[in-house]
Design a protein around this nucleic acid. Structure first.
Length: 137
DNA sequence: GCCAACGTTGGC
DNA sequence: GCCAACGTTGGC
């Protein structure tokens, strides 16, 4: 299976990149949106993931990878919800802000811009590479 | 099956 | 703090 590319959002006040880097691994639980869940289910171990700070931050701040593909979310009170495990790889030398992304012609159609409420989304390989480049990573 | 009301997310 | 987008719920 070829590597797929994703972006996940997190409110830094709830769980920041710093928390993630300290933990070395995080169970991505609590997703309760069907579209986001379907993206979680499509993740494979080893896939590349960008970590985005929503709210106070509004920037892509780090690179991660999928450590474990989808499994039942133990925090859910109803069946059917899933979690994945994510592992931090490295922070981006320079966070890529939402404003920067919106200003980039090659990125104006990504889900982060087009579908701002989605918390787990796929990224085309080219868009993923572009954001990494903008971040100096 | 439609639609109004309402709640949540997230940018500004 | 406000508002747009959008998902969910419930009445009909």
């Amino acid at each position: 299976m070829t590597t797929q590319y994703w972006l996940v959002k997190q409110e830094p006040a709830d769980y920041s990149w710093t928390d993630f880097a300290r933990d070395r691994r995080s169970a991505w639980t609590g997703v309760r949106n069907y579209q986001a869940r379907n993206h979680l289910k499509a993740m494979q171990a080893g896939d590349a993931v960008l970590f985005y700070h929503s709210g106070d931050g509004k920037a892509v701040v780090g690179l991660a990878r999928v450590g474990r593909a989808a499994y039942p979310d133990s925090t859910a009170t109803e069946p059917g919800w899933v979690a994945v495990d994510l592992v931090p790889v490295r922070p981006l030398p320079q966070p890529v802000t939402l404003a920067r992304i919106k200003a980039d012609a090659a990125l104006r159609d990504i889900a982060l811009v087009r579908h701002s409420r989605l918390s787990v989304m796929p990224l085309p390989a080219a868009a993923f590479a572009r954001i990494l480049k903008l971040g100096g990573g």
